[in-house]
């Protein structure tokens, strides 16, 4: 419910007034496919009560909350659930722009252990934007019930980022998730994402474009990813980049917020 979300963000504003200087403040983005229990993870970590529901597309707005772990202050941002970051719809664009331009310290991708393959598409796309990724393999309780086994260690080494198996509904292993978030944020764990290798023709094109644009792409943005999006023919990334260059340095500007529906 829209208005409830407002109520929640008000609450988190209050939390933010906790003395800040004694904590290191870090931002964590929560991405994931719809209906993987993202909001449940969000609520469990922040103690907030963002409305949860079992249907895809429930969270279309960004919600923010805070949690403290190992004496650090984490701001958790719940992004809209999306299947990809191709920016087909407003919610996908919101999620992509946030990860890409707001540059959170860590991006947690919440995945559904019962249908991992589809969820991995998003994980792979997020890893192309940022190496600071933690995969939260959620709904493990459901997977166990359906007799589905996931080799967590192997998955972690295949992806090159930490994978934490959780069951957010019962709060299982969420402390491990927080540990992993902190480890990646602080650099204690060095992630080395294994990126998707495309066919040779695309790789060559990407290299060519990358070479051309990398001196121009603003710091912190991954030129390979920008090159890929250009190859995609994704016009919206150009718009977003231009907006970033224009307004991004302005601290009052918030990335990943909704864009108006423009029809005249």
């Amino acid at each position: 419910m829209a208005l409830l979300n407002l109520a929640c963000s008000k609450k988190s504003c209050r939390n933010r007034s906790v003395p800040q200087n004694q904590f290191l403040r870090l931002t964590v983005a929560l991405a994931g496919n719809p209906n993987t229990g993202k909001s449940t993870v969000f609520n469990a970590l922040t103690g907030l009560s963002q409305h949860t529901g079992n249907w895809p597309g429930k969270t279309v707005q960004r919600a923010e909350g805070n949690f403290y772990h190992r004496n650090k202050h984490f701001t958790l941002v719940d992004l809209p659930g999306t299947y990809s970051l191709f920016a087909n719809s407003v919610d996908e664009q919101v999620a992509r722009d946030y990860i890409c331009f707001a540059r959170p310290d860590v991006t947690v991708v919440v995945t559904d252990a019962t249908c991992l393959e589809r969820n991995l598409n998003l994980v792979l796309q997020v890893m192309e934007i940022t190496p600071k990724v933690v995969v939260c393999l959620n709904l493990m309780d459901e997977a166990e019930r359906k007799k589905i086994c996931v080799d967590v260690e192997l998955l972690s080494s295949e992806l090159g980022v930490p994978v934490v198996a959780t069951a957010a509904r019962s709060g299982r292993c969420l402390d491990k998730l927080m540990d992993a978030i902190d480890d990646v944020a602080s650099g204690r764990i060095k992630t080395s994402p294994r990126l998707v290798a495309y066919d040779s023709e695309i790789e060559q094109l990407v290299q060519k474009i990358e070479l051309k644009i990398s001196p121009l792409v603003p710091e912190g943005l991954n030129p390979r990813w920008v090159a890929l999006r250009l190859l995609d023919g994704d016009r919206s990334i150009i718009d977003s980049l231009q907006r970033y260059l224009r307004e991004g340095k302005n601290s009052s500007f918030h990335w990943g917020e909704e864009r108006a529906l423009c029809i005249r």
């Binding site: 991992l116 393959e117 598409n121 792979l124 192997l154 998955l155 295949e158 998707v196």
Partner: peptide, 20 residues
């Protein structure tokens, strides 16, 4: 082709780590 590259990677990894 780019989307296809991502999908086939996801399929390959999922095939390795998931068992029923």
């Amino acid at each position: 082709r780019i989307a296809g590259g991502i999908y086939s990677s996801a399929e390959r990894i999922a095939g390795k780590v998931v068992s029923r």
